[in-house]
């Protein structure tokens, strides 16, 4: 199986072959490693890597998104990852969005979920770099979301009083 994965905004190429009931040969951007992988519970997973490193992983699976935490490591750290494995259709939408951004449209989104306190602009309005587009509030903190590049407000996708998830698209600004 071949997958395209997205981690930290970058596309990565994965190829996976099941060698025997619990052995998986995985190539990440061409680098190959053999894993012994067992699911322990519905959200815990044990993997032994090439060099017999034991990885204890907590995970949650969504439609096309996987959240992982590596529970044991000699660094005494707490590593978590969010990885997208979109299907062809979603990959197309994502690439189209990147093209749109490249061609000059800025997509305004929020990394913080919360309630839309106010929409500071109207469709068609001209805005300067750094202008506040939307104010979102969560946990007694207001976050002013600004346009980086400025331009003309092409579309607004939310209303005041509405709650939004993280990464929600709020507005589009065109040059």
């Amino acid at each position: 199986m071949k997958y395209t994965a997205i981690l930290n905004g970058k596309e990565r190429n994965l190829e996976i072959v099941k060698e025997s009931p619990h052995m998986y040969r995985v190539s990440v951007d061409g680098e190959i490693c053999l894993f012994d992988a067992r699911a322990c519970t519905y959200d815990l997973f044990s993997i032994l890597g090439c060099d017999n490193t034991s990885y204890d992983v907590a995970f949650t699976l969504e439609e096309s998104r996987t959240h992982l935490i590596f529970r044991n490591n000699p660094n005494n750290s707490n590593y978590s990852f969010t990885i997208d494995l979109p299907d062809e259709r979603m990959l197309k939408i994502r690439r189209a969005k990147i093209d749109e951004e490249k061609s000059g449209t800025e997509i305004i989104n929020t990394s913080m979920p919360g309630k839309v306190i106010s929409v500071m602009v109207k469709e068609g309005q001209n805005v300067a770099p750094g202008d506040v587009i939307v104010i979102i509030e969560a946990m007694k903190m207001q976050n002013e979301i600004r346009t980086r590049r400025g331009g003309r407000v092409k579309s607004i996708h939310i209303k005041e009083g509405q709650t939004v998830e993280s990464n929600a698209e709020l507005a589009k600004i065109e040059r």
Partner: peptide, 11 residues
């Protein structure tokens, strides 16, 4: 890399 491989195995 390990995280990406894990995601593929889980999938």
């Amino acid at each position: 890399s390990v995280a990406l491989a894990t995601a593929a195995i889980l999938k």
